[in-house]
Design a protein around this nucleic acid. Structure first.
Lengths: 192, 192
DNA sequence: TCCTGGATTCTAGCGCCGCTAGAGAACAGG
DNA sequence: CCTGTTCTCTAGCGGCGCTAGAATCCAGGA
């Protein structure tokens, strides 16, 4: 049944197109501008086609989040693998995390600020999300110190980075001292 | 002109009613449920009345945020003033901050997650926001350590608390170890 | 080559949203 | 009791997420 295979392939292509277009539109004009009508127009299909791929807008956000998580994981691993020593790895991870958030604000929002209907911190958490956390843990675990569980340390470090990323971008923190804040965070939290 | 005074008083009362009702509705059913129609119905006026007090929904969110900031400032000051010594004050501040965020999620969102059209970290930042930051600085400044500016330290500590608050509530962090995370954060960040 | 039946896609529309123009009611001051 | 202003409401605009049912397409068989 080569016909059916082709149809499935085309369907998968179109699904990727939807997700990529949603991401693109969100990065260009923010998630508020990602409406089902505009999205449908951009992919040159009618609105109901979206609903044959996803249950609703929320699931599209979730799909962008999964894509972003995979991308973030490789970004973090690339950055920390280029650093020498535990301390440098922690700094590299922090910088590349914040850099990713700054360069891809819409994807970051899809992952951590919006509701994409994804399950976090549980057994049935999707693989890309688990892997992004694992990527952080790989670099941070060795800086947890003796009496602290690496996962707990990673959670706290991650939360601090997340706070810096969101507050900075929302204009809640003065934009100038970003690098100083990273240095302070790393020097105090990391034990080595 | 007693008549005019009465009218101004009644207008101010109604404005407070709008803000309180918006807050109440948001805490009960989330900000998505706070629509201008529902809000108008609850205060027993028609929709356009809202627009004679506020430019739009965003400004109503901003008003709730200001109210919440003042409340948070007194909450934080009360908690830290009951603690003995710098270290205990930092712990008390962290716990009361997270407690406030947990007890008043909608107000917290209005302050730090939603766009209420408020200016942060600038000269024309509204007084309640400045004061809430000042309340944090009062307890945290003495734990900054020698070579770190108290304001910078407060920013980083605040960002970490904000990350913990938002990630926990969004289900991004396992709910069980919240207290352990606070302890780790305080013990590593605070210098004394 | 032409049917045909199922899969696919579209048009049209539902109830809701934030917001506003203009009609109408209310009321203070003469 | 008028009257002019000030306030409030009704009604409606365009856009939202989402969906029922009509229209179209097309693979597979006659």
């Amino acid at each position: 049944m080569s016909v059916q295979e082709r149809k499935e392939r085309e369907r998968a292509d179109r699904e990727r197109l939807i997700v990529a277009t949603a991401r693109e539109l969100a990065e260009q004009q923010g998630w508020d501008a990602v409406t089902t009508r505009r999205l449908a127009e951009r992919i040159e299909y009618s609105q109901p086609v979206l609903y044959s791929h996803f249950r609703g807008k929320r699931e599209i956000v979730g799909a962008v989040a999964l894509l972003g998580a995979a991308e973030m994981a490789t970004t973090l691993r690339t950055a920390s693998s280029a650093a020498d020593g535990p301390r440098a790895r922690v700094t590299a991870l922090a910088r590349s995390y914040l850099g990713f958030a700054e360069r891809n604000p819409a994807v970051y929002d899809a992952m951590f600020r919006l509701d994409g209907g994804l399950v976090f911190a549980a057994e049935d958490t999707p693989e890309p999300l688990k892997d992004a956390f694992a990527a952080m843990l790989e670099s941070l675990g060795e800086a947890a110190g003796n009496s602290v569980h690496p996962a707990l340390f990673t959670e706290v470090f991650w939360a601090a980075l997340h706070g810096l990323a969101t507050l900075t971008r929302a204009g809640r923190l003065p934009p100038g001292d970003a690098e100083k804040r990273v240095e302070l965070l790393v020097s105090r939290l990391a034990m080595m």
